[in-house]
């Protein structure tokens, strides 16, 4: 099968702010045009700030539905409001109104309305972009509309598009920046992954969140490796993280010292591998290790 030649790498962290996006973008630069990049942190996407994609093509993303009441047909019976478990149909000035923020598009109200006054309408929940990055690779990214739902579905859309582009272009890698947490966008970003890179920091929060996101990865039986960023902030915590990695047989990819180059590079709209520093070599070695893990027969 052709798709066996594509290696899909997902970068996660559990806790936010560990350096996940800076490192993902660096790997994207190192992989160059042999990778398709997917930014799956759709409700706080940042990778475009480093990879400078051209926003070449834009697609509207529709997902889920919203109930709409035709007031001319409504007889104010209130059945819709009674069945709605999301309290999304308050009565205001003697009219039943749909509160779009609360409506989850289940369609129960539409089914029970005796006068057929309610219809379900497709709902726009974001935009998807297919771009060229500054290193010439293709990047699929997205923006979830403000306060929208269905981020998991938008993540799936970004990933599927990235996969199709990688297949069509005979690329070897898909590099995915995931979102923090353990909920639907994270689970969605894991579908089809071959390897997960976990980026953590030596704080009690970092380790706690790492353990939870690792438990999610375990359910999908995906191999993973871990980068300890800012390892020199707290050496005892770093030692504890390493202990956890050994117990769980997670590859230890690298320890990265605290370095202001992360924010300095960001201001210059660069990744840390585009600036001369000891970190450039270190991140280069991470990419080599990941490639080695991916091509090794289990």
């Amino acid at each position: 099968m052709q798709s066996n030649n594509i290696h899909e790498i997902v970068v996660l962290s559990g806790k936010g702010g560990t350096g996940k996006t800076s490192l993902t973008a660096s790997l994207a630069v190192l992989a160059g045009n042999d990778a398709v990049i997917a930014d799956c942190d759709v409700d706080a996407a940042n990778m475009h700030l480093l990879l400078r994609p051209d926003f070449g093509e834009t697609f509207e993303f529709y997902s889920g539905e919203l109930a709409v009441i035709n007031q001319d047909l409504c007889n104010q019976c209130g059945t819709c409001a009674e069945v709605c478990r999301f309290h999304a149909i308050p009565q205001d000035k003697n009219q039943y109104q749909i509160n779009a923020l609360d409506c989850e598009g289940c369609g129960y109200c539409e089914k029970v309305c005796p006068t057929h006054a309610i219809t379900m309408q497709e709902r726009r929940s974001g935009s998807v972009y297919i771009s060229k990055t500054k290193v010439g690779s293709t990047m699929v990214h997205a923006r979830l509309d403000i306060a929208a739902e269905n981020s998991g579905k938008l993540v799936a859309k970004v990933k599927n598009d990235a996969k199709a582009i990688a297949l069509a272009g005979n690329k070897h890698f898909i590099i995915v920046d995931g979102s923090p947490g353990i909920g639907c966008p994270v689970v969605s970003s894991l579908a089809g992954a071959n390897y997960v890179i976990l980026v953590t920091e030596p704080t009690m929060s970092g380790l706690h969140d790492l353990k939870r996101v690792h438990a999610v990865i375990e359910r999908f039986r995906i191999k993973s490796g871990c980068i300890i960023n800012k390892y020199d902030l707290n050496k005892e915590q770093t030692a504890e993280i390493k202990c956890f990695l050994r117990e769980e047989q997670i590859d230890h990819l690298a320890d990265i010292p605290y370095d202001s180059i992360f924010s300095e590079a960001m201001i210059e709209e660069k990744t840390i591998v585009e600036i001369e520093s000891p970190l450039k070599q270190l991140v280069g070695s991470i990419w080599e290790k990941v490639k080695e893990q991916l091509t090794r027969k289990n």
């Binding site: 936010g16 702010g17 996006t21 409700d43 706080a44 940042n46 700030l49 923020l101 979830l144 403000i146 306060a147 929208a148 739902e149 981020s151 979102s179 923090p180 947490g181 909920g183 924010s263 960001m266 201001i267 709209e269």
Partner: peptide, 28 residues
Amino acid sequence: CPPGTSCPVVAAARKADFVVLVTEPTPF
């Protein structure tokens, strides 16, 4: 509250009288 801008943070902040947004002085 949870991070992000989608449904979890909206659900978490909906009852608030005031929202403090904690940020850092970087492009991200």
